[in-house]
Structures are given as structure tokens and as C-alpha cells.
Amino acid sequence: MMSASTEAHEKGSPDFVVAHHFDSADTQFDAGRLGIWLFLVTEVLFFGGLFCAFFIYRNWYFDSFVEAHHHLDKQMGALNTVFLITSSLTMALAVRAAQRTKRSETVNMLFVTFLLAGCFLVVKYFEYTHKIHDGLLPGAMFSAQGFATQHAGVFFAIYFVMTGIHGLHVVIGMGLILWILIRAHRGDFSSRYYAPVEGVGLYWHLVDLIWIYLFPLLYLVG
């Protein structure tokens, strides 16, 4: 997020310079954080459209939603919830380690976060293949037999789009975590400069936040 200026600057630590258009490291830091928060706002509204669709169709096709949601695996969903909240904890600890210039702790925590994100995707993979196998698919592709109600296809459309886009965010998050992991390993961060760790952290917590809503709405109450 930050643009480090090339011009030499006496401010800050040797491996970090305050960009020329900021008056202090604090301002630069706050600017970055405000920028991330604004970005998170756009993420909420982006997912918001899908939540809106979910509530409307749930109202209309209540019976279909109830019937269809029984085909999701609560245990798998709960397991994934545990993976994500744990990864949120380790991410928070990674930021905390970076704030205290604990290099190897930062790297380790990021690594655990990365692994937990991977676990989440593995579980998701098994869920998806199972659904595809059973023909529990969106709209026109829906081919499962034996449904008492008519509109399970709408439920699975929403299920796949929501979890698909969320999964995409997890993948992007893993890329970002890997990136700061490498930078942390290189020793880029210190108590004076850890903005990228914190920024990726905020993004990761948002991914968790969205799952916190997706899980009960899709798996538990339908």
C-alpha cells in the first residue's frame, strides 16, 4: 500500500523510509490503515449483494431452502469454521509479533495461518466434489433427484456463488500471506514498520468475518 520514496530520507529505520508526501511515519501508517478500512467497506458491500439475494429467496422459497440446506454437511462447515477462527488468531499473533520485531515468531505464525487456510480449502474441495457428484448444483445444472420442493436450484446457486467467491478470497489471502511471509523472513518488518502485515491481517479477518455469517446462514438455518 505504501509507496516508499526512492529519495534518501533521514526519517525512520534504515530499512524503511517515510514516503516523501507524508509528514511523519504516523501519518503514513494511519493513511494506510484508513485505506484498508475503506477497502473492507467495499468488500462488505460486494458480498452484501449476495446476502440480499439470500434473504429474498429464502423468504420466497422457504421450504426449498430448508430442504436443500439439509444436504450441506454441518460437521464439515463447523470444522472449517474452526480452521478459519484459529487462522484469525494466528494472524493476529503474527501482527503482534511483527509489532514487537520478533522475526521468527512472525514467520511461524504466518506459516500456521497459511496452513490453516489450506486446510479450509481442502475441506471445501471435498464438499464441492460431493455436491457435484450428487448433482446438487445451481440453476439449470441442478440434477439431484427426490426433492419434494421445486427451488433447491436457487439455494445451490446462492450456495455456490457465495462460497465460491469466499473461497476465491481465501486463495487470494493465501497469496498475500505468502508474500508477507517472504518479506518477514527477509527481515523487512520491525516495530517501526509493519503496515503490510497489519493490512493483510485486516483483510484476512474480514474473510473470517464473512464466513462467520455464511456458516450459520447456509449450513445451520438454511
Binding site: P138, G139, A140, M141, A157, F160
Partner: peptide
Amino acid sequence: AFQVGIFDPKLGGD
């Protein structure tokens, strides 16, 4: 691309 049906009245969409 995939006819997911969220906006398609034939598939229950609106």
C-alpha cells in the same frame, strides 16, 4: 455462462 438462475424466472430467479 452457466445459467445459475439467480435472475432467470424459468429457474425460479427474479
